[in-house]
Amino acid sequence: MKVLLVNGSPHAKGCTYTALEGIAETLNTEGIEAEIFQVGIEPLAGCIACRTCSKKGQCVFSDPVNDFLDLAKDADGFIFGSPVHYAAASGAITSFMDRAFFADSLAGRRSFYLKPAAAIVSARRAGTTAAFDQLNKYFAISEMPIISSRYWNMVHGATPEDVKKDEEGLQTMRVLARNMAWFLKCKEAGIKAGIPFPQSEQKVFTNFIR
C-alpha cells in the first residue's frame, strides 16, 4: 500500500516538508510506502473551467497537476500539506488541488473515490485552522474518508529547526500516520472479506434559481 504526500510549500525542505517527512517515516514503520510529491516553485495557473479535462482525461495545462494525477490513480491514500499564507492554504496548493480534483471528477477517473485523505498545515503562529478547514473540503466533496489525529493536524515554527522542537505537533503527525495506516489495513481486510463498496447513485445537480 502507498500513501502520496503532497508538499504545497515553495520550500522543498521547509516546515511543511518536515511535518510530511515525519509522517512518511511513521508510515514506513507501519509497512506503508510513502512518497512526497513536491508541487514546486513554478507558477501554477488556476482552473479556467475550460472542461478540456472531461474530453482528454487530463488538465489542459502541462505542469505538475497531470504528473500528480498519473500517480494518484495507483495511490491508496493521500496527505496534502500546506504552509499558512494569510490564514489560508498557499496559492500554489489551492490552484493545484482545484485543478487536480476538478480534472479527476470531470474525466471520470475516480482516483480519489473512497481513498483516505488528510490535510496538514504549518504556520509560524496563527491561521492554521482556517487553512486546515479549507483543505478538508476537497476530500469531503470527493467521497474520501478523512483521517484525523488527536489534535488538528498542524505544526508551528518559522524554520524546520523550530518545527522539530514542536513536540506536540510532531506527535500529532505520528498519530495521524498510524491512523492512516490502520484505516488502510482495515479497508484492505474489508475488500478481501468481500465487503462491497457503497451503492452508487447518479449525481443530481440543482441550483436555487427558479
Rank of each mutant, 00 (worst) to 15 (best):
P116R: 09
T94V: 11
T129F: 12
G57L: 05
C59I: 10
A72M: 07
G46E: 12
F61E: 11
Q134Y: 06
A158W: 08
A131I: 04
Q58S: 08
T52A: 14
R99D: 04
A88H: 12
Q58T: 06
D63S: 05
N153A: 13
M97W: 07
F68Q: 02
Y151A: 15
F101I: 04
Q134E: 12
L114F: 11
C47K: 10
C53L: 09
T52G: 06
F37Q: 00
P43G: 02
K55C: 11
L106N: 08
R124Q: 15
A88F: 03
T94S: 11
R124I: 13
Y113L: 15
R109K: 15
A89E: 04
V65M: 05
Q134S: 10
Y138R: 02
F101E: 02
G91C: 06
S62E: 15
D98V: 07
C53F: 10
I147A: 01
I120N: 01
I48E: 13
I120P: 01
P145Q: 08
A158C: 13
Q58C: 08
G77C: 04
R51S: 10
V121M: 03
K55M: 14
F101N: 00
C53T: 10
S111P: 03
A140G: 07
E42D: 11
C50P: 08
P145C: 07
S122F: 00
A49R: 13
Y138S: 02
K115F: 02
G108Y: 02
T52Y: 13
A89P: 01
L44P: 00
I79D: 00
F132K: 02
L71K: 15
Y138E: 01
F112D: 01
S149W: 04
G127F: 02
A103G: 05
A100G: 06
N153I: 11
I93E: 01
A118Y: 04
F139M: 14
G40E: 05
A119D: 05
S95G: 04
A126D: 14
R99A: 04
F37A: 00
A117S: 12
D70E: 15
S105W: 07
A49N: 12
G157C: 11
I48Q: 13
I146Q: 09
A119E: 04
A49T: 05
Q134D: 07
